[in-house]
């Protein structure tokens, strides 16, 4: 097996052109992980250095520091290159602050998760109401 040349990788679907760049990885469960791509394979298994999860609830957001992560490819939905020239989030969004896992009790984090849970429950409820009313042919 031969390795593709430096110029080939930019024309292929390989993730090689994203190596050492800051990426956004969307997972199947809706989580958003950010980090620097250090390795990958043909299944889209990826290694992220300095990974953090970005939690967004309404206009609030927060980053949870995770560290070095290996993500199994089957959970990956999308890998996006973050353009350093552009803002990562709309200016209207309010930042939280990076918080180390296991040190959550004296920050606004419990509140944050509560808000996230409430938002999810609301959207689930909307989903089930819609499903129950489907026979009405709402569209």
């Amino acid at each position: 097996m031969s390795w593709p040349g430096q110029e080939d990788v930019f024309f292929s679907t390989s993730l090689a052109s994203y190596l050492d760049k800051k990426l956004l990885v969307l997972l199947r469960d809706g989580r958003k992980l950010l980090g620097i791509l250090r390795s990958f394979d043909q299944f889209a298994n990826v290694v992220l250095e300095g990974a953090h999860e970005r939690v967004i609830v309404g206009e609030l957001y927060c980053d949870i520091v995770l560290g070095l992560y290996v993500i199994r490819g089957e959970n990956v939905v999308l890998i996006g290159e973050l353009d350093p020239e552009r803002e990562e989030l709309p200016a209207s969004m309010t930042p939280g602050w990076a918080i180390q896992r296991g040190d959550l009790k004296d920050c606004f984090f419990p509140f944050f998760f509560q808000a996230q849970k409430a938002e999810k429950e609301a959207s689930d409820l909307k989903g089930t109401m819609r499903k129950r009313m489907e026979f009405l042919d709402l569209d």
Partner: peptide
């Protein structure tokens, strides 16, 4: 999808 704001190039896994 506010988190997608600065994504210019992306890789999408075929299975999704």
């Amino acid at each position: 999808y506010p988190h997608m704001l600065s994504v210019r190039n992306c890789f999408i896994r075929g299975s999704v």
